[in-house]
Simulated scan of single mutants.
Amino acid sequence: MKLGLQLGYWGAQPPTNAPELIEAAENAGFDSVFAAESWGSDAFTPLAWWGSRTENLRLGTSVVQISARTPTSCAMHALTLDHLSGGRTILGLGVSGPQVVEGWYGQPFEKPLARTREYVDIIRQVLAREKPVASSGPHYPLPYNGPGSSGLGKPLKAITHPLRADIPIWLGAEGPKNVALAGEIADGWLAIYYTPRLAPMYNKWLDEGFARAGARRSREDFEVAATCQVIVTDDRAAAIAKLKPVTALYVGGMGAPELNFHAQVYKRMGYEKEVDEIGRLFMSGRKEEAAAVVPDEMVTETMIIGNLDEVRAGVKRWEEAGVTMLLVTCRDADHVRELAAAVRG
């Protein structure tokens, strides 16, 4: 089982101990470090700044939002970071949700699957650098000849030769169609709220993608990186209680009530009644009551919590379910070392 350090996105201020965490992760044998973005800090700059102090860690985005950049711009970011890091970039992409896409980026959210497919195709054209990049659209036509066009645009090849034509592209996906798309066109799946109990369902979705004509990977060379809190503790109940407000936030408050992808994931797990009640309470401002509705199992399904033996058994269970990497968050350098020792034995 590989370990990835998830730095996430920034809150009101940058984190103060990220360099310490990254140094500890590299020394402890972590595979990767990841940065994310929402509607504040971006994902590429922290990886370039803090990643310059590393030698072995892969540098991944988990995730960059496709509406934040044109596909050619995103490819420029990835090939630049790949050169600077000596070929250690992982490009994790995600569609985000309509509140962010339309409210922050001013882009349409419709047809996210088709947009993702077209976006990835253009990035791969840039990285292959075999011919000038062109796309018939409809979402990212190149060259652009629509309203307001000068008519002077022409297909171009990147001036800078990419270090690698095959920079890994991983998709952040939650629903069945998007996970199947990851199996078809990507090199890995960034899974959130993964539960080993539903591994047969996830594997069915992935297998649908692997079976499509022209699929890029097979199960044998495809990575599944799952976000997972790993907590080593003798007081399991207390740890679960602390995490319930976070679960309530994502289920009840992250996304529009009409379309909350996180809530949909938990409904697929069988928590439909709980999700509806959490959402109702959270949206009415009763956040503590919303957290109280979260059952213990709703937390422990998607996390590994317990004493050392229980954690190691949990890691083995996730690995047997098909997960190749756990993306973990850490408080400090000691926590990084603790998790490395627990996961690796």
Rank of each mutant, 00 (worst) to 15 (best):
K2R: 13
Q6W: 13
W10Q: 06
W10N: 05
A18I: 13
L21H: 06
I22T: 03
E26S: 10
A28Q: 08
A28F: 12
G29P: 07
S32L: 05
V33M: 11
F34I: 03
W39S: 09
G40N: 10
D42G: 15
L47D: 06
A48M: 07
R53F: 11
G60T: 05
V63L: 14
A68Y: 09
M76G: 13
H77Q: 11
L79D: 00
T80D: 01
T80F: 00
T89L: 08
T89P: 01
P98C: 12
P98T: 14
V100R: 11
W104E: 11
Q107P: 12
L113Q: 12
R117Y: 06
I123V: 07
E130K: 12
A134G: 04
S136T: 09
S136D: 12
Y144C: 11
G148D: 15
S149E: 11
S150K: 13
G151T: 01
G151R: 04
K154A: 14
P155T: 05
P162S: 00
A165V: 08
I169W: 04
I169V: 12
G175W: 00
P176R: 03
N178Y: 09
I185C: 03
L190N: 06
L190T: 05
Y193I: 02
T195D: 12
L198Q: 14
A199W: 09
M201G: 09
L206F: 12
D207Q: 14
G209W: 06
A211N: 14
A213K: 13
E220I: 13
F222D: 11
E223F: 10
T233W: 08
I240A: 05
I240Q: 07
V251H: 05
G253V: 03
P257D: 02
F261L: 09
Y266H: 07
V275C: 01
V275K: 00
I278Y: 04
L281S: 00
F282T: 00
S284R: 15
K287Y: 11
A290D: 01
V294S: 00
V294W: 01
I305S: 03
L308R: 14
A313K: 15
L327N: 08
A340I: 10
G345T: 11
